[in-house]
């Protein structure tokens, strides 16, 4: 277990996003305190994945994307002059919906790929590989075959390898976009345990469609909703316990109880 360290706080101020002429998000103000897991829930198309991508500037890859507002990492605007997209992504890691290990690389090289891609020096490769794989709780399964191809692993192992790959960059924040939606229940449980352990050393934001998962792993929850032909936004944000057991907004109540979405 990693000892509890104070992790960075991420917060957004009036984030709005456009794709071309269409506004997809409007005025999102959220705070993700250090060492907390925040779940983003809501029906498909409500903009939560888009929002997640604004947190490490990945939405910039989509042609025609535009943004207003600010994202602060410990008070510094990641869209400000002091940051470029690459240094933001080094500090704020991301895990995708579908496991995406690099198929031409071994398990070990996958772990080191972030450092190589961003052109940073690798200090002690062996140690970094072991620590990263341990933090993603997959070390015991792969320690004897670090030079095997990454795609020889099962789906759940691949996803944990991808988490380890992000951890090797030592990010302050980890963004997870439905990390378990392509996995079986056993793998899902293991990843949820990993998320819990990781929160002792970092800030985590996770998008999920699984209500039980949000309840199991998160400390606070934000409910996103986009009414017909209007941009998405946050309906309600608070402690997970409160969002699921005593929501203030009727729409939140309907959603978490499975009445729509």
């Amino acid at each position: 277990m990693t000892s509890l360290t104070t992790a960075s706080t991420l917060s957004t101020e009036d984030i709005s996003v456009w794709f071309g002429q269409r506004q997809v998000l409007s005025d999102v103000n959220l705070t993700f305190p250090g060492n907390k897991v925040t779940a983003l829930i809501g029906p498909s198309g409500c903009g939560k994945s888009t929002f997640l991508r604004t947190l490490n500037r990945m939405h910039e890859l989509i042609p025609g994307a535009g943004l207003s507002g600010s994202v602060f990492l410990d008070g510094e605007d990641i869209y400000g002059a002091d940051f470029d997209a690459v240094s933001v992504r080094i500090k704020i890691g991301m895990v995708f919906q579908k496991p995406n290990p690099f198929p031409t690389m071994s398990i070990k090289d996958n772990i080191l790929s972030g450092l190589r891609l961003s052109g940073r020096k690798i200090g002690n490769a062996e140690e970094l590989v072991e620590t990263s794989l341990r933090r993603a709780s997959i070390w015991n399964e792969v320690k004897d075959r670090l030079n095997d191809q990454a795609i020889s692993l099962s789906g759940g192992q691949q996803q944990r390898l991808c988490i380890a790959r992000s951890l090797a960059m030592d990010p302050e924040v980890l963004l997870m976009d439905e990390p378990c939606s392509a996995l079986d229940p056993g793998s899902t449980r293991r990843i949820e345990e990993t998320i819990k352990e990781l929160s002792s050393s970092m800030t985590i934001v996770i998008v999920t469609h699984n209500m039980q998962q949000a309840q199991r792993v998160s400390d606070q929850t934000a409910f996103f909703l986009a009414d017909d032909n209007t941009p998405g936004g946050v309906v309600e944000f608070g402690a997970t316990e409160q969002i699921f057991n005593g929501p203030i907004d009727q729409r939140t109540n309907d959603y978490v109880n499975g009445h729509f979405g």
Binding site: L61, R89, F96, Q97, N100, F102, T104, L117, S118
Partner: peptide, 24 residues
């Protein structure tokens, strides 16, 4: 997603091309 994954790890156009796109 492979390319997005590489970019999310801090890859630049050139490094993503050389280390991910071309080998794959």
């Amino acid at each position: 997603d492979l390319i997005n994954g590489a970019i999310a790890l801090g890859g630049s156009r050139l490094s993503v091309f050389r280390k991910v796109i071309l080998p794959t």
